[in-house]
Nucleic acid binder design. Structure first.
Length: 436
RNA sequence: GGAGACUUCGCCUAGUCCGGUCUAUGGCGCCGCACUGCUAAUGCGGUUGGGGUUUUAUAGCCCCUCCCGGGUUCGAAUCCCGGAGUCUCCGCCA
């Protein structure tokens, strides 16, 4: 799955990239170091700088030839006779040069973009080195409940007639499910509560498209190493989103924003993931599925505000987790496990009694200018100059949350206690029992 | 799905037939100044945007930009082809 096709499909090229290249030129060593932390080749940076230089040269040549052509072209209408014939002959030659120079520029720009897309975001200072298992636990919150022989969420869910994975498999295959009765109601209540909290904190609630064009996928960094995770509709050249982060990021593509204050969205969408390469992993229940629903936070802000915004999103997640009364811990994800777009990532992991361990339920990434550069999202600074914006995202609630909610609040009789904050969203009921 | 109309510098709009100071018209809005107890009104001036370059700065210079991408041409907002989007009507359908 290469990007040149996507580039031709209309992804923004050139200008916005160069702004950040200026920064790259100043600190290439910093970026090489970051590359090593991620376990990727530092030479990508040199490829990028070379491509940048090539593009500059090509552009300068094109502009020079073009300027001459225009200048001569302006004289043609005023000229007559022999003078005109000479001019026409000269411009005829120039036309060929211009065309060649333009082609060279276009090619150089595409090469630059390709080199650019290959370079992951620079890792933020303080990120733990290492891979998947090298995260640092920042804190553990809440008391782990003592439950004798805890049932897992699927057993509880089936008892409540809330989760039906057998029929999910019958209708759509493995890793699909039906939420029915109190299961459906619980999910709607949880997502509604998430939206309400987001609105209270000034986020704009949004219901987003689930199908997006290639440039939206490319721009958010999802067609990189994890392209095989993405569903693609061949007939229409559209992708099914794995998170509303994608449409929300692309929402402001090719725009210049007023980012005096950060712009914040809470997107509700169904999400689709192929889960390729996770065969045999987490096959039971709804922990790892092909389709789920999610409320995702997304912020556009100035780069200097991004760290504070990141902590803000994390605080939102913790507020939600507190409302569903589930014990959790916060981890600082290690450099090798960041994904190409993030400079830093905090995950919240909820306690899952049946497994006796924490499982990821939220993930919030600071992408700084990585996505905005690719999607050409800018803002105007005090001097009126355009600068690349920063983007951040974080999970506010998803279907997976049903697992810790059901398991941590299960009762010996098979019913499930409803956390207080959720009750108003469930018509006031304080316990889940089988129903229609 | 069928037919037609349309897309111009924040918004509206002239220009497209008949290619060349269109380096885009006018209005609204906005900014500045003047006048007037204040406001309003009026008058004058300014105002497409993006990138590069240069300067202490002001200012300037160059390229790109008339939905997007190709083509024709010495030269394209204008002509040709392809695509996207918007609207209207018809058909169909949650």
């Amino acid at each position: 799955m290469g990007y040149p096709d996507e580039v031709r499909a209309g992804a923004p090229v050139g200008s916005a990239i160069v702004i950040d290249l200026r920064l790259l030129r100043e600190e290439p060593d910093r970026i090489r170091a970051s590359q090593r932390l991620r376990g990727e080749s530092p030479s990508l940076v040199d490829d990028l700088l070379r491509a940048d230089e090539r593009r500059r040269t090509a552009t300068q040549r094109f502009e020079a030839v073009r300027a001459e052509q225009r200048s001569l072209g302006r004289q043609v209408p005023k000229s007559t006779g022999d003078e005109r014939a000479v001019l026409l002959a000269r411009t005829k030659v120039l036309a060929v040069d211009v065309k060649a120079a333009e082609a060279a520029t276009t090619e150089a720009e595409q090469a630059l973009r390709a080199a650019h897309l290959a370079v992951p975001n620079v890792v933020e200072d303080g990120v733990p080195p290492g891979g998947e298992d090298d995260f640092v636990v920042l804190r553990e919150v809440g008391d782990i409940p003592r439950i004798e022989n805890p049932k897992d969420h699927l057993e509880i869910g089936e008892g409540l007639r809330a989760i039906d994975t057998e029929r999910g498999a019958k209708v759509s295959g493995s890793r699909f499910y039906f939420l029915t009765g109190v299961g459906a109601l619980l999910q709607l209540a949880m997502l509604q509560m998430a939206i309400q909290q987001a609105v209270e904190h000034g986020f704009t609630p949004s219901i987003t498209p689930s199908l997006v064009k290639p440039e939206a996928m490319e721009g958010t960094g999802f067609l990189g190493a994890h392209a095989s995770e993405i569903y693609r509709l061949e007939a229409d050249d559209l992708y099914l989103v794995g998170t509303s982060e994608v449409p929300l990021a692309a929402y402001h593509s090719n725009e210049i924003l007023d980012l005096t204050n950060p712009e914040r969205f809470a997107g509700w969408s169904s999400c689709y993931r192929r889960e390729a390469g996770s065969y045999g992993k987490d096959v039971r229940g709804i922990l790892r599925v092909h389709q789920f629903d999610k409320v995702e936070m997304f912020s556009f802000c100035r780069p200097e505000q991004a760290r504070a915004e990141h902590l803000r999103l994390l605080a939102m997640e913790e507020e939600m987790l507190a409302k569903v009364e589930v014990p959790y811990r916060v981890i600082d994800v290690a450099a090798g496990d960041l994904g190409s777009s993030a400079t830093r990532k905090f995950d919240c992991e909820a306690w899952v009694p049946s497994q006796g361990r924490y499982r990821e339920v939220t993930s919030s990434s600071n992408c700084t200018t990585f996505q905005a550069r690719r999607l050409n999202i800018r803002y105007r600074d005090e001097d009126g100059k355009t600068q690349t914006a920063a983007t951040l995202n974080g999970t506010l609630a998803t279907t997976r949350w049903l697992i810790p909610i059901l398991e941590n609040h299960q009762q010996p009789d098979g019913s499930v206690r409803v956390p207080k904050a959720l009750q108003p969203h469930l018509g006031g009921r304080d316990v889940l029992e089988p129903s229609r």
